[in-house]
Design a protein around this nucleic acid. Structure first.
Lengths: 154, 154
DNA sequence: ACAAATTGCGCAATAC
DNA sequence: GGTATTGCGCAATTTG
């Protein structure tokens, strides 16, 4: 609950919103208030030194109005920003899931491929054997093992 | 940048920080700033309304010190938060890339698989033909077309 | 010139 | 009794 800093007024504050302006004086903090500095071009007599326009007095009615509007905008902006961050996080999760799915699929395909290749090789050997020994034993030879492992590269 | 951080500090004002309270009417619009209400424990007539201890006066030395520390913490926290958001975004990009890579790989494997399967089918047909007609023509038959299309499901 | 949007900052309440 | 987070308002900038 925002309260007026300074003198209390604590406890059930008046229904009115009170805004405080803080002003401090900050002796420390050597905040280098480095500012633009157009680097005045030499001794050019250019008087163009744009001053800040006070816009209006603090207690102006228009001022208050502007502030209010801005406060609203700020709130909106922040909310949106937060939302976006959340969405991004969500996106990460989704992508991660998708990734896993793809990875699984790859695994499956790889396996399938490997099996087929093995079959192929085996068959090729059989053919070769047959060619060498047209009249071999009785049964259709079954090679003990034809190990083929890896497949792809990258 | 950053000239007078806060309310005015009107030009070289008094080295003394002054807090101004805006006793304006401040219809903070419909800002729902509800809060508190400590849930009175039971129906005890206890007037015990714990007050927040003002901690210290605003111009206290300790106060100033606490503020400074907090400001620092705040800055740190925000910076970190921002960093995190950035990292998350980065992660999204990486995951997206990874995704594309995987997708490409899948495509490749699928194609490879399809080719092998075709070859297999073709061969099977040949075998079947041979079985039916052990004494076929001279050459090693080459079937015109054995179209096999799709491959996977899911 | 201008209004909305962003951004950095300090305060205070609160969570840890 | 400390830091860490969070909502909030101010003011300077940036954007459209």
């Amino acid at each position: 609950m925002s309260r007026a800093p300074q003198a209390d007024t604590h406890t059930l504050g008046p229904p009115n919103g009170v805004s405080v302006i803080q002003t401090h004086t900050h002796p420390l903090s050597a905040a280098a208030t480095q500012q633009d500095t157009h680097t005045n071009t030499g001794g050019a007599p250019a008087p163009a030194v744009r001053m800040k326009k006070p816009h209006q007095e603090k207690d102006s009615d228009e001022y208050r109005q502007r502030r209010e509007r801005n406060n609203l905008a700020v709130k909106k902006s922040r909310q949106r920003s937060k939302q976006k961050a959340q969405d991004t996080q969500q996106r990460v999760n989704e992508l991660k899931e998708e990734n896993e799915r793809l990875e699984a699929k790859i695994k499956l395909l790889s396996k399938e491929l490997s099996v087929l290749k093995d079959l192929f090789l085996e068959h090729a050997h059989n053919l070769a054997d047959n060619a060498t020994q047209p009249t071999s034993n009785a049964d259709t030879g079954s090679s003990p093992a034809h190990n083929n492992g890896s497949t792809n590269g990258q």
